[in-house]
């Protein structure tokens, strides 16, 4: 991973991490009924900082990953709380779209510069 991507800045790393976080939250939602499943998540801000300092996006995500502390413990040992996971999933999807919009803006700027019209 380039330290400072001259073309896309941090948006490239951010998009990768958003996609990884989406898979992680999807895993939590998929295991909403599995006994003893422990919900996981990672700290996006820390992961992005790690990715910016040269760590690969995969590693950055796994370094900053942790288990979620449930608001209300359940009897079967499952720590997935659907309301929490759904909210975070929706939030992450919106942020993914935002990152896409930043990338789109960057691409159209560069295209304008290239075409010189």
């Amino acid at each position: 991973m380039a330290n400072n991507d001259p073309l896309f800045g941090l948006s490239g790393d951010a998009l990768k991490l958003r996609s990884q976080r989406m898979a992680l939250l999807a895993s939590n939602i998929a295991n909403a009924a599995t006994p003893n499943y422990k919900a996981r998540d990672f700290d996006f801000q820390k992961a992005l900082a790690a990715a910016q300092s040269g760590t690969s996006a995969d590693q950055a995500a796994s370094q900053t990953a942790g288990y979620r502390v449930p608001l209300e413990a359940s009897l079967d040992g499952n720590t997935v709380e659907l309301s929490t996971e759904q909210t975070l999933f929706a939030e992450n999807a919106v942020q993914y779209k935002t990152t896409l919009a930043f990338l789109q803006g960057r691409i159209s700027t560069v295209m304008t510069a290239l075409k010189g019209e």
Partner: peptide
């Protein structure tokens, strides 16, 4: 009986 299937780092299905 539901069982978690791990798909590598972090991700898992059931």
């Amino acid at each position: 009986v539901f069982k978690t299937v791990s798909g590598g780092e972090g991700v898992a299905t059931v």
